[in-house]
């Protein structure tokens, strides 16, 4: 038997370079799971939110119930949301994704609907006067003009999803949340701090990435200002 090593791991320090180098693969796996869960949920949410928002815009009667339903969903705390889905999905990654889709749906529908409603009536009439049909009007006029509001919603939804994935640790699919959960049970300070910081870094990076995408997709918003 050799004497236990006296490094920062043994001393259980908050910041530990040794931890980063020896557990690199664990951290990378957790980050990969975190990114995957976030991306899948937000993309699913987007795929459902756009038609819902268009429906609510086109058919005024649907707007009230759609907004009310999304508000109710958003009020339910994340832990309860995951738990309510347990009988449907069991202990699986699908449970976490389903919960996150419901949350991103709320944020996306609200923002896309607000964007669609903000399209000036004159613009719509001008397009119709030029012979645009309803589908062409939606795809080439209304949706592009709703992009800035929609992208704002997408950024909020993504940042929220990155942070909510951690709660998925309760079913073992929480990305970095799993490391935080395990670190809590073993009082492993370096692991908890590293995973938490990585969560925030992912959230900020995703936000900046989407901001860059938004600027690329809506060049007219910059031309107008300059």
């Amino acid at each position: 038997m050799t004497a236990p090593p006296d490094d920062c791991l043994a001393r259980n320090e908050w910041i530990c370079g040794e931890y980063l180098s020896t557990r690199r693969h664990i951290l990378l796996d957790a980050v990969a799971q975190h990114l995957q869960l976030t991306a899948v949920s937000v993309l699913f949410g987007l795929a459902v939110a756009v038609p819902l928002a268009v429906l609510a815009r086109r058919w005024g009667l649907a707007a009230g119930p759609v907004l009310a339903a999304t508000t109710v969903l958003y009020t339910v705390p994340s832990l309860a949301m995951f738990s309510l889905l347990l009988p449907v999905y069991g202990l699986s990654a699908a449970l976490v994704v389903a919960g996150l889709v419901l949350y991103s749906l709320t944020l996306l529908v609200r923002n896309i609907l607000a964007g669609l409603r903000a399209v000036p009536e004159e613009t719509r009439q001008a397009a119709r006067g030029m012979g645009y049909g309803p589908v062409r009007l939606l795809l080439t006029v209304e949706l592009p003009l709703a992009l800035p509001a929609g992208m704002a919603g997408l950024r909020i939804a993504t940042v929220s999803a990155v942070s909510l994935v951690t709660v998925g640790a309760i079913v073992g699919f929480g990305g970095l949340g799993n490391l935080i959960y395990a670190g809590m049970n073993t009082y492993f300070k370096a692991q908890v701090l590293t995973a938490s910081v990585l969560c925030v870094v992912i959230a900020v990076a995703a936000d900046l990435l989407l901001l860059a995408v938004q600027r690329l997709m809506t060049p007219w918003t910059r031309a107008g200002r300059g």
């Binding site: 909020i156 940042v159 929220s160 990155v162 942070s163 909510l164 951690t166 709660v167 640790a169 949340g177 935080i180 959960y181 670190g183 809590m184 009082y187 300070k189 908890v192 701090l193 995973a195 938490s196 969560c199 925030v200 959230a203 900020v204 936000d207």
Partner: peptide, 14 residues
């Protein structure tokens, strides 16, 4: 919004 609630709770616990 960017800071996970769960992470803060565990950090405070430690």
């Amino acid at each position: 919004r960017a800071v996970p609630t769960f992470a803060v709770l565990v950090l405070l616990l430690l």
